[in-house]
Design a protein around this nucleic acid. Structure first.
Lengths: 353, 353
DNA sequence: CTGAAAGCGCTTACAG
DNA sequence: CTGAAAGCGCTTACAG
């Protein structure tokens, strides 16, 4: 390769990495040789010699959820802007697989890691941070750990969902939430729902209906419980803690002859386009995956550049309401009092500001 | 590290890579040292010294389509079974990005590549195959090139979709397909639809309605055209070439007062859970992403192991019908003549066998 | 079963 | 601006 161009391999390396140090003629000669020989640089040797790779790792809990694909898109864009490569891995909802992914990127000597976990993962990230490779946590509040994180305001998610039902004229609201407090977003969304209730400014009935897991089956069981009551005792607005639970509720409610949104308006909470199909397009609250990805990469690059003078921060993004048919046709529906903007799928989006 | 365990680094390497060659005592001592020192092997140095990485690359055209996430899952499973690592990248529907991903894996010295493209990509894969790294093409028929490929039988996709409408009692069938022949699946699905028509065994009207792009907007325009006719001149069964086109058609049809499936039964063709929301859950034909992933990895590993005595093959997987509400309630509906099996979402699946 | 040594393909100061 | 040389952290025959 180097001899084919009549130069040393040090010069070839400079053409590839520091072209400003090489004369134009030499660059042209080397590039010719690269093309004719089909030379492809060995990134392993390169990283080894340079003392580190030009890559950032991104590990998300599940690529089956479209929000995390959005995160990857955002991170990818920001990484390329910085001239870095993005390595991507999904964890299939498994903490163990996530750990293997983190280790794999650690072995690959990534410059830093973006991690979207379901639970506290400090035991896994320590393996990176100990070696001076910064970690930024995405979509999980890890602010008790010494790391940066970027999240969507889940309290605001619950608030927007409940507020929208109140604005639509609902008088008896139910929150379908998990029984336990382990799952961080459940706790926060419930709190937001309660805040909206407290601010309602008029008497509104409120209840919680426990779902024992975050599945459509659990949502369906909640619908069974509601349908068993006399119609006057049923809620007329439901906030389900996830879209999947909401879909389960709606489908079963329809099967049981309850009109959605005519008799009960239903909100999801995480705008999950991977949720099961639903006969009634679901109003929900969008989680801003792309923006989480870009923001997280920005934090990570800052930490890489300014270690050890870096101050950890927590970035909280505002979620936005997405209004579709599962609430738009509620029979008591007063118009939403917010300003609205059309999306290209002709649903309405209200930014949380 | 090695000195902390009191052994040479050659022995450490053997503990990690060939533990059978090391005594149990030494292994224990080395593992202790690894744990206490938090040692993490440098995969770059490892690949360089070993003359190749332990990784396979997978490049898919877009991770936003859930089918490709399924492909990744299948490939991942098969790779881990073989003790290999799976590197994953999405191309955002861009041929240029795809090329960058291929180059990146080429530089990483992967053992082989799985590529799910939208078009002929031999110009990009040549960069890998020239260097002795096998490539398997996924979800695209590249059998004119010297590579293995694994596809779903797209002719059968069209056939199953049309056959299901015929079995449901439709008498006037329309195919919503692309105008041009550039997009391989369009051509094949159309052919399958025509075969089903030819086999109908009774007089059935057939027409094609051209859509100029594979979007929901194009589907909506097709619905406009249909609605403009007198009701007696409309099709009563529609096969849309993709789910996204089908959703656009259905939503507009409903807006225009046409009942789906009451007046028109509608089939999609690629079971795309990333398609826009639809008021009527969509019958479609599932594309077997996971199985494509495992099959492709199997072909690739065979080629890696048996080069140059490897014979390229094309694996064709059978698609399967997924019946949901957009056809199930057609007013003329005779029962489907096939045996059926319940899915956990209580839709019906008929395997193409 | 273990160690010493060569070498993988690059990058990076350092001379010139 | 260019080349020669050392070295990155491993793996792999090869001796012992």
């Amino acid at each position: 390769m180097a001899r084919h161009a009549g130069v040393s391999m040090g010069t070839v390396s400079n053409v590839l990495n520091h072209p400003a140090k090489v004369s134009e003629q030499t660059i042209a000669r080397v590039r010719d040789a690269i093309d004719t020989l089909g030379f492809v640089r060995d990134a392993n040797a390169s990283s080894l010699a340079a003392g580190g790779s030009r890559s950032i790792g991104l590990v998300v809990i599940n690529l089956g959820n479209s929000m995390f694909v959005d995160v990857a898109r955002g991170a990818q864009t920001a990484a390329h802007t910085a001239g870095l490569n993005l390595l991507l891995a999904g964890s299939e909802d498994s903490f163990a697989v996530q750990g293997a992914n983190v280790d794999s990127f650690n072995e690959a000597r990534v410059q830093g890691l973006l991690l979207a976990p379901l639970q506290d993962s400090s035991s896994q990230t320590r393996r990176m941070t100990q070696r001076g490779r910064p970690v930024v946590i995405v979509n999980y509040d890890a602010s008790s750990d010494p790391v940066c994180c970027v999240v969507v305001d889940n309290e605001q998610v619950g608030y927007l969902a409940a507020k929208h039902l109140l604005d639509s004229g609902c008088e008896r609201i139910a929150f379908l939430g998990g029984e336990d407090e382990k799952f961080q977003p459940v706790r926060l969304r419930r709190r937001g729902v309660r805040r909206a209730m407290a601010e309602a400014g008029r008497p509104v009935a409120f209840e919680e209906i426990a779902v024992d897991e975050l599945t459509d089956a659990a949502g369906a069981r909640a619908a069974d419980a509601v349908a068993a009551r006399s119609p006057g005792m049923r809620p007329d607005g439901v906030v389900a803690v996830t879209d999947t639970v909401a879909v389960g509720f709606i489908e079963r409610a329809l099967d049981l002859g309850i009109d959605v949104p005519g008799q009960i308006a239903v909100m999801g909470c995480d705008r999950n386009t991977s949720a099961p199909d639903c006969r009634v397009p679901l109003s929900s609250v969008a989680m801003q995956g792309y923006e989480m990805g870009t923001a997280a990469m920005r934090l990570l690059l800052d930490e890489i550049a300014h270690t050890p003078n870096h101050v950890h921060q927590r970035v909280v993004l505002a979620p936005s309401l997405v209004v579709r048919a599962s609430t738009a046709g509620f029979r008591g529906g007063a118009a939403d009092s917010h300003g609205t903007a059309s999306e290209d799928d002709s649903s309405e989006v209200v930014n949380a500001g």
